[in-house]
Design a protein around this nucleic acid. Sequence first.
DNA 1: ATCCTTCCGATTTTT
DNA 2: TCGGAAGGAT
Length: 843
Amino acid sequence: MSNADTLRRLALDSLSPSQRHAAVWDPERPLQILAGPGSGKTRVLTMRAAWLVLGDADRRPIKPENCVVVTFTNRAAREMRSRISAYIGPSMTDRLLLGTFHALCVKFLRRYGRLVGLANNFTICDSDDSIRIIKGVIEQQADMLKESGVTIKAEEARTEISRAKARLQTAEAFRKACPNAPGNMDRHTAMANVYKDYELYLRGSKACDFDDLLLYAERLFCLHPGVCSKIEHVLVDEFQDTNAIQYALMQRLSAASGRVSIVGDPDQSIYSWRNAEVSNLEKMVHDFSGIKRIYLEENFRSTGAILDASLKVVQQDRMRINKGLYTAQAEGAPVTFRTFDTELEETEYVALEIERQMQLARPMLRYADFCILLRFNALSRGFEAALRRRRIPYRMLGGQQFFDRVEIKDLVAYLRVLDNPAYAPGLLRILNVPKRGIGKATISAVSGLASAQRIPIYSVLEQISARTSELSVHGRALYGIDTFVSVMNKLRERVQQGLSVNELLTCVIEVTEYKTYLEREGDFASRWENVRELLTFAALCAGDDEREELYLPPKRTKLDPEEQEEEPTPLRTFLESSALATDRTDDDTNDKVTIATCHAAKGLEWPIVFVAAVEDGTFPFYRSTTPEMIAEERRLLYVAMTRAASNLYLCSTKRRMMAGEWRNQKVSMFVTPLIPCSRGGTGLSAPTKTDAVMWCFTSPLIQDFLHTTARILQRSVPSEEVLQQNRIEYKFSDTCTSLDKLDACRNAALQWRSEMGNVGLPSKSGFLSALNSLGSAALQHGSNLGMRSTHAAPADLQQSHGHRRSMSSTTQNASSAAPQAHPLARFTSNNTAPQRKRALGMH
DNA sequence: ATCCTTCCGATTTTT
DNA sequence: TCGGAAGGAT
Ligand SMILES: Nc1ncnc2c1ncn2[C@@H]1O[C@H](COP(=O)(O)OP(=O)(O)OP(=O)(O)O)[C@@H](O)[C@H]1O
């Protein structure tokens, strides 16, 4: 048992007593670990998995291939894999049934799918193709829809169908069920019809959408429990975000053993829009007898200040059951809250603050220590621009980016159709790509005939090409179809020859003259670059990079005498990973700032986190209407805030361009109660530590908290000499100058507005030119504008002078008596003793 | 069939 | 602001 001993020595000892208690809890009893953010849930779950497969003195180990570890996202799966691997080594980890719900289900379906009526070459239909199908269905039903006076948008239909599927609701059941929005029976019926035909179309295409993967697997496990009866333990991460189908899957997978361990946190439930049901936590108590609940209350991630602010946000939820959560970490730097005029300054500030932190703490911090969290992807634009301007490397997390590119989708569609000729959405996608003169009219005639005669679309095309079709196609279109059919035949031959995916792709590009096509289409360089990347990805897939693969052990018993023992072809493996993979370009090796949505950040952590656009309309999102939706938005902010370990910044703007128009933004309702009235919030004017958050409204000191940051990061604090040098260099840096400018303009604008009775602000262009025209001379002014306390640079510089400021000291004097002039004009004429100079002079 | 312009409408979150 | 849809010219 040396393995188990090793685990005990190296790993179990790194857990706190209550964590260890949970990790080695009796495997025969179902276990729920409920705990707040940063309490080490993932650490405990991974350790438990390791402990289960390594065994213990008085307990035999379970086989890794009989141990299921499911996560919600690919990223979580990867994280899980690497953590477990650290405990039990890669070869044992590879044997685990570890992956997302979807990946796990696909593996079973590839092997046993025929037991539930799935061809083994079924294609996974991504949302794009789903939309394509639904558009076709809606078009076909256009008359009916017009009659009932209902309009249905494809995207709406897709989400509604997806939600129905998450509830295990078939088209028929959906029709019978009450409409979600009561009173609109026509629409509900119409939707049910779309759902029904969508299903027919999928089946005809031998395709499964994402939800089908789970539904079919559930049916498989239900009808043929033998396929998963060997499973000895099921572990589920982020359980609060499971929906009905996922819960059902968990039940089926554990039907034989009854052994499950889950971790979750009701306060971090942020997927109810996807039909996640927190109530599954309670349901589980009923469904699994003898279940044990263990609570963990110590947060190991964040500083006291961060945890305090986060808890004060989430505790505003009156319906919430309060749970204990404390940290042994130091209080750390206060949470920074800043409001800017527009997105331009907000994003600029974040970029500059990243630079300031890095410069003052050099060489302790790296770009990868920073993360910018967004409510939705579209907000990334501004940040990307700002980071690029400052030449700060960054990466976007989540957002299907790579496989969403048109050129990638086109090529992958060719492969899909080669693997499964019946896959209609793919076929329709590529039929006229590159352009072959096959237009809308021809396409709808062909697919009309196909559905009327109940034959696959590609058969119709073949008939047309063989001139045996009743459909008359002429001229360019006919020639185009001929070309397409011969292209596909050529490629199919290649598939027979057993080419590698990489070679096959090269063939596709060659035979279709895709490169020429891209050259004509424009933006060639970057699109071709993407194609190259796809080729690389294909090559990687083919290599023995099996570690990311979920591997199902060889069957011992045949459940169906008919079934052939067929290993998935490389092509199929490739198509699977391209359909289920979300995050491609994860060069963890590179040092980059992360930009991510709050959802994508779930389960992750960074030393320094900026949350952007903490405004009403964003947090909560303006489409949240019900109290439940608002509560979820609050939890989302909570999740975002609790990603931070050492420093947390909340940013907001006063005006934001949304839907093409400027909107006046208010600070998020989740935060205003925590801000004193004197600062524009609705909180107490004289806040105390217990009832308010001690925000920093300026730029947080860095030096004072370096040791806390260092301790959290387990890095060493730079020496005093280095720090001194950093301060000097920072002072002369462009970062410092620019931060000063930003603050100067902000104050100027603030004051100007208060003087002008809040009538308006300098126009954007005026503002920008003001920014630019503010030369270094102008930077040395502004003491009577209340700039002193908002100055970023002097804050740290003053320390060495012995000056100390309260962190929450403010700029209350902004409206001191001043001439009625444009503030920027005064800026350039004013000539008061500058802070900056003073700071410079001190050495 | 394709290319071009014009107009409209609307912005979540993920597998 | 921008991307998609719809409509018109070639
Ligand atoms: N016993 C411990 N001692 C020291 N550090 C720990 C301990 N347990 C967990 N941590 C650290 O705390 C951080 C949070 O752990 P983990 O990600 O497992 O928490 P979590 O509960 O899954 O968080 P969340 O719910 O926010 O995703 C990690 O950096 C982890 O290494």
